[in-house]
Nucleic acid binder design. Structure first.
Length: 316
DNA sequence: CAGGTC
DNA sequence: CCTGG
């Protein structure tokens, strides 16, 4: 089954190549020009979506091929299209953000090589929450192995052309797996949080997708109720799980980048960083931070700065 | 010993 | 608190 997405589905500019080469956290996989991932549909069905580009930056066109190809209902096709559109931000208009970058020499430089890129987000709020919890306290690249382990040990397996693919595990799967198995995924102290959150969702029958309809403030309040979710995790979930642009997460990488490029290398208190972001990147804080923390060591050279922390966006 | 949370 | 650096 092939699904085509063109002008009416994608707001240009759209840079598919960026999506293909950055932040491919399992179950996202990039293979031979195709972006692949397993999806679990509302009715529980597991399928694989393979996305490739046939268009250009200003005339984007994507084709989604779904496997297995048989027995896909019309409403399932629609659902797959919606999921992919959401994850890749196809309907997001980033032009106001680019306009803002024009006035910021650092952001302008950071965005130069990724014009038309749109942040990749998680298909479900649940996957976003677990993903961000795994992102606490680590160098970014470790996130890849944690998510890979969770999927291969606890996700659903599907074989396509002799190759195994895994879905991101459902709350139910996680909630009923022993702590020791979750621990084996090398998630460390996060194991209890991950299991606890899954248990709460199953026991209280919570539909996390409803958070997408709430205001950023209300959604944040709901997120903070879960164990293991503090201000950092809540804000990053809002950014990568709910596509909120007006949130800021401060971790060591973000702090370091802001000190270096906006405060002359001086370590200033968080309050000042927050104030700066709100003032200068108003409404686009999360997009600015995304730009600043992606391939930093590469574009920093154009500004004559030798930035020491590696970004991890490309997954090494 | 990070670093975000408890 | 875990784990990788």
């Amino acid at each position: 089954m092939e699904i085509e997405l063109s002008k009416t589905d994608i707001i240009p500019p759209y840079n598919f190549d960026f999506a293909l080469t950055h932040y491919n956290i399992y179950p996202w996989v990039s293979e031979e020009g195709k972006l692949i991932r397993v999806l679990q549909l509302r009715n529980g069905k597991i399928c694989v979506a393979e996305i490739k580009s046939l268009g250009t930056l200003n005339n984007p066109k994507l084709v989604i091929r779904t496997k297995p190809s048989r027995n896909i209902q019309a409403e399932e096709v629609e659902e797959i299209k919606e999921i992919i559109s959401w994850c890749l931000g196809l309907k997001e208009d980033y032009r106001p953000f680019y306009e803002m970058c024009e006035k910021d020499r650092v952001l302008k430089t950071a965005m130069e090589s990724r014009y038309g890129s749109k942040g990749k987000s998680y298909p479900t709020v649940f996957e976003a929450i677990i993903g961000v919890i795994c992102a606490q306290n680590i160098q970014f690249k470790r996130l890849y192995s944690m998510m890979y382990n969770l999927c291969t040990k606890l996700g659903e397996r599907i074989k396509i052309a002799g190759k195994d693919y895994f879905s991101f595990p459902s709350p139910k799967n996680i909630s009923r797996s022993p702590l020791s198995i979750i621990r084996e995924c090398k998630v460390g102290y996060r194991d209890k949080f991950i299991k606890k959150i899954a248990e709460i969702i199953v026991k209280d029958n919570i539909n996390l997708e409803k958070l997408k309809k709430l205001s950023t403030e209300d959604a944040r309040k709901e997120l903070l109720k879960f164990p293991g979710i503090g201000p950092y995790t809540a804000n990053l979930v809002l950014a990568v799980g709910l596509r909120r642009k007006d949130v800021l997460h401060l971790d060591r990488f973000v702090r370091e980048v802001m000190y270096t490029f906006y405060f002359d290398g001086e370590k200033v208190p968080d309050e000042l960083l927050i104030k700066y972001a709100n003032k200068h990147w108003c409404g686009f804080q999360s997009l600015a931070v995304d730009a600043l923390t992606t391939n930093t060591e590469i574009w920093a050279k154009k500004l004559g700065i030798d930035f020491k922390i590696k970004s991890g966006a490309r997954g090494e």
